[in-house]
Design a protein around this nucleic acid. Structure first.
Lengths: 248, 248
DNA sequence: CCAAAAGTGTTCTCAATACACCCATGT
DNA sequence: ACATGGGTGTATTGAGAACACTTTTGG
């Protein structure tokens, strides 16, 4: 299946016919109005037409490098982020023949989900600026290539993942409260979840409490008025999946 | 994002660094014991080591061709199948650096779901044989490259799709019966579904009846003993999705 | 008329939601 | 004390599963 129709010679070297790239859609949830808390990482850099343009962080894949390695390198070289331990997922491959005027390029888009509070963005050598952009505002931007489409597909993917897996905990401190957890779901899935009562929310998380991977570890010290929030810790692997999908 | 670190020259041609291929995982449900009804298309052909080996149908991507076009061409050239109207979905891209000893190859795996009753398999010029292989028996085969992994991922994907979309109807005649429809779900998801009563099964399909896309169009003529089955027609697009996932 | 295969309807269970009530803190 | 934000428990609703019952055919 890897030989062209009229080329049954077997030990021949294959001749490269395309350029492989990776782009990474990094999602986070940040301190911001609920509608704008769900954000994606963009970098501003020179485009193939000489203009500067917003884009996803990405690099060309090196010959001996896996896609995941290339994706981590993209984050390091473009935004100064050490993604060595981040959970990365392959999203989809974008490679319309007309995608790039300089040749046939296939970009294997990846997705990452991270807590951004302690992260410091450091634009790479060829990068003018880096920023977190609210997903709800991406449409206002003109993005390079088909990066807008990548983000669109990425948003669908993370919404789906949030419903059947535990990625949400990757967006929180090791110690967090129920309202914080709920806010993550509200920011990504549906703002109206913000009004879901603690009890009903905890019921949706019941399997986690029962299996002991979500533990109550006391009270948070309060700064505000009202009863202080309970503190929880998630001790399970974030890569696990739910048996039943969440109904939201 | 498409320039290597020390190559900011913009109008330069990009130098191909990899070979792009597509492989297609074609699923069907065939007349067979329930455990073996869910099948996948394999082709037997010469491999890069000179031996003959079972593999998924695949081709190298041509410069001006989309991935979907290449996938359809793979089915035509390898198995003589006209996939012009088939619904194709991108599955994932497989490109471990060590995947193929002849160079860096990235294969964009695709998935297709078809009714195979009227299909005639015609092995291509470089193909020794083509066959439908029960998914439950794939493990017994030694497959080329990472094609076993592609099938594994493909099975997950179609199982998921069956639960939230209407792909099942792609596997049936235009006119079909409830037991036939149930058999499709049973073959792909869980044999025990075969014992689900018609009533409960129809309840799961309720949104389809209510929206009128699933219509009762009379009785099937019976050959067997017992009450003849009701005939149904599906008039909606198979690409639509359910609001709620099926519980199975 | 009986057996077999399909289809219908009822009941039971359990999960998702709504909502009323209780708790702990700052002012 | 009381207003405010957080948490618990209970009632109501609705969906899924089990199963008994009816329908329609062949033998």
């Amino acid at each position: 299946m890897l030989t062209e129709p009229a080329a049954p010679a077997d030990r021949r070297e294959l001749i490269p016919n395309a350029v492989l790239a990776v782009d990474v859609v990094v999602f986070t949830v940040r301190q911001a109005p609920l509608k704008e808390a769900f954000q994606v990482l963009l970098v501003n850099q020179r485009s193939e037409d000489g203009m500067t343009r917003w884009a996803l962080p990405g690099v060309l894949v090196r010959p001996t490098e896996t896609f995941a390695e290339a994706a981590r390198r993209a984050l390091l070289e473009k935004a100064g982020l050490d993604a060595a331990t981040w959970y990365l997922d392959q999203l989809a491959t974008f490679g319309e023949p007309t995608r790039d005027s300089r040749g046939r390029v296939a970009s294997i888009a990846h997705i990452a989900v991270v807590r951004s509070d302690d992260l410091i963005l450091r634009p790479g050598a060829d990068v003018k600026a880096t920023e977190w952009c609210p997903v709800s505002r991406v449409e206002e931007r003109v993005l390079a290539f088909d990066h807008a489409e990548m983000i669109r597909v990425g948003v669908q993917r993370i919404r789906s993942k949030l419903r059947y897996s535990w990625v949400a905990f990757q967006l929180l401190d090791p110690e967090f409260t129920i309202p914080q957890l709920r806010a993550v779901y509200a920011a990504i899935l549906d703002p109206s979840l913000e009004r879901l009562s603690t009890g009903n929310f905890k019921k949706a998380m019941r399997p986690l409490f029962e299996s002991g991977v979500l533990q109550n570890i006391g009270r948070a010290s309060t700064g505000r008025r009202g009863r202080p929030r309970d503190l929880y810790r998630f001790v399970g692997p974030v890569t696990g999946t739910r048996e039943r999908e969440l109904p939201w």
